[in-house]
Simulated assay, not measured.
Amino acid sequence: MSKGNTPLTQKRRPDRAALFIAAFLAALAGLIFWDTSRLATIVSYSGIGPATIPFVIACGLLFLAAWTVFEALRGDFPVRDRQEFGPVIWIVGGLAAQMLLLKPLGFSVATGLLFALTAAGFGKRKLWFTIPIGIAICLGVWLIFAGLLQLSLPAGPLEHLFW
């Protein structure tokens, strides 16, 4: 065994991705603190008001940001695998399709396409199989939410066949 730089004696650089995540968490906490300060002017009869839970969430996010910075500077994060962009593109495409098709085609078809494209991102590329399954599952969800719970979800031609 040779002497020199072994993995145990080699000093790792700070994890830049973790530092970016910590900055994002801190910025999100700051935004919630700012919004909470506007809610704090609402007077309630007890010490717990509409600003209490957002304040606790912001404190938790700030704690997580500080912890992430500490771990990033120590270099304790495991080495990550290379990012695969193909699955991300499938899922983002599914989200975009859902947003574009939700109003004209309704909840079941738009969300069924999101289901199928997300499944394709995870490796199930048989769209002829996953699209009908996704639409059927989403139609069941729509029927439960619209029929039993009386909640309003966008209805398209398929939903109008059932309701």
Results as ranks from 00 to 15, higher is better:
residue 1 M to I: 08
residue 2 S to K: 13
residue 3 K to H: 13
residue 4 G to D: 09
residue 4 G to M: 11
residue 6 T to C: 06
residue 7 P to H: 05
residue 10 Q to I: 04
residue 14 P to I: 08
residue 15 D to T: 10
residue 17 A to F: 14
residue 21 I to N: 12
residue 23 A to V: 10
residue 23 A to N: 06
residue 23 A to P: 04
residue 25 L to Q: 06
residue 25 L to R: 02
residue 27 A to F: 15
residue 29 A to P: 05
residue 29 A to W: 06
residue 30 G to S: 12
residue 31 L to F: 14
residue 31 L to R: 07
residue 32 I to D: 01
residue 33 F to V: 15
residue 34 W to R: 11
residue 35 D to Q: 15
residue 36 T to C: 09
residue 39 L to Y: 02
residue 39 L to H: 01
residue 39 L to M: 07
residue 41 T to D: 11
residue 44 S to F: 08
residue 45 Y to L: 08
residue 47 G to E: 03
residue 47 G to V: 04
residue 50 P to N: 00
residue 51 A to V: 06
residue 51 A to I: 08
residue 54 P to D: 06
residue 55 F to C: 05
residue 57 I to Q: 05
residue 58 A to M: 07
residue 62 L to V: 04
residue 63 F to W: 13
residue 63 F to G: 15
residue 65 A to S: 15
residue 67 W to I: 05
residue 67 W to L: 04
residue 68 T to A: 09
residue 68 T to P: 02
residue 71 E to K: 09
residue 71 E to L: 10
residue 74 R to D: 03
residue 74 R to E: 07
residue 75 G to D: 09
residue 75 G to Y: 12
residue 76 D to W: 00
residue 78 P to S: 00
residue 78 P to D: 00
residue 79 V to T: 12
residue 81 D to V: 04
residue 81 D to F: 01
residue 81 D to C: 00
residue 81 D to A: 13
residue 82 R to P: 05
residue 83 Q to G: 01
residue 83 Q to E: 11
residue 86 G to W: 06
residue 86 G to T: 10
residue 86 G to K: 14
residue 87 P to E: 01
residue 88 V to K: 03
residue 88 V to Y: 01
residue 88 V to F: 09
residue 89 I to K: 07
residue 89 I to V: 15
residue 90 W to G: 01
residue 93 G to E: 07
residue 97 A to I: 04
residue 97 A to C: 12
residue 99 M to S: 14
residue 100 L to K: 11
residue 101 L to C: 14
residue 101 L to F: 15
residue 102 L to A: 14
residue 105 L to R: 01
residue 108 S to R: 10
residue 109 V to P: 04
residue 109 V to D: 04
residue 113 L to N: 02
residue 113 L to V: 04
residue 115 F to N: 02
residue 116 A to R: 11
residue 116 A to Q: 09
residue 118 T to R: 04
residue 119 A to G: 05
residue 119 A to S: 09
residue 119 A to W: 02
residue 121 G to H: 08
residue 122 F to M: 12
residue 123 G to I: 13
residue 126 K to M: 10
residue 127 L to N: 08
residue 129 F to Y: 06
residue 129 F to V: 15
residue 129 F to C: 02
residue 130 T to W: 10
residue 131 I to G: 02
residue 131 I to M: 01
residue 132 P to W: 02
residue 133 I to A: 05
residue 133 I to N: 04
residue 133 I to K: 00
residue 135 I to D: 11
residue 136 A to K: 06
residue 137 I to R: 07
residue 138 C to E: 07
residue 139 L to A: 10
residue 139 L to T: 15
residue 139 L to K: 07
residue 139 L to E: 13
residue 140 G to K: 05
residue 142 W to H: 13
residue 142 W to I: 11
residue 146 A to T: 12
residue 147 G to E: 06
residue 149 L to V: 03
residue 149 L to Y: 02
residue 149 L to C: 06
residue 149 L to E: 00
residue 149 L to R: 01
residue 151 L to G: 01
residue 152 S to D: 13
residue 152 S to H: 09
residue 154 P to C: 05
residue 154 P to I: 06
residue 155 A to V: 06
residue 157 P to Y: 04
